[in-house]
Amino acid sequence: MDVLNVEYMLGLVPVLLGYLPLTLQLAGVGMVLALILACLFAVVRVLGIPVLNQLTIVFISFFRGTPLLVQLFLFYYGLPQLVSALTVIDGVTATIMGLTMHFSAYMAESIRAAILGVDRSQTEAALSIGMTNSQLMRRIVLPQATRVALPTLMNYFIDMIKATSLAFTLGVTELMGATQKEAAGSFLYFEAFIVAAVMYWIVVEMLSKLQHYLEIRLNKAYSR
């Protein structure tokens, strides 16, 4: 067995770093959209809004019950076949759609649980000063639920960053796609993928630090 080609690895770092922004963009946009969708789903579920509630249940069931890769292929290869307007859908858009829907299904459930965990007296107090349902959700219940949901939501975000690597199967050259190409050219598979792995790892570690910081901030109101 040859020794590791360290020089090649070092040279690869700047090359692969150039593709990191796309990976972060896929995860960042996907996370924001998934969060918005998940909050809407959770509120619909908690308030039990007729029709929407049932639709949400089916949506969550489908996107939790099928593999992300299948969903991505469905969006990228399948949808254009049904709807001709979607023939122009590109890999990036399809990936973001897939990540958004897949992860919103998971996050909706953890946000719903966090909302249900907010003490009933908080809602009553908000009603007693004359707030509407949407005001009390926005100002009292959701902020308190955020604190409870944060650790699991960050878990999903971390998961989502790693899941962006599936985008290479749709021909998107993000971090994983670029590594694959580089490795195929040099035949130095171990070197290429270990560099990519460490890059993912570092990003996730930075997020864990962010999570720690956010938890301290959100817990400020609850420390004596």
Binding site: E124, A125, G130
Partner: peptide
């Protein structure tokens, strides 16, 4: 809503907004 806005309530367990 307007009845609630004409009345105020003090709770046994205080029920201050904890956030």
């Amino acid at each position: 809503l307007s009845m609630r806005r004409r009345t105020a309530f003090v709770f046994q367990n205080y029920a201050l907004f904890s956030n």
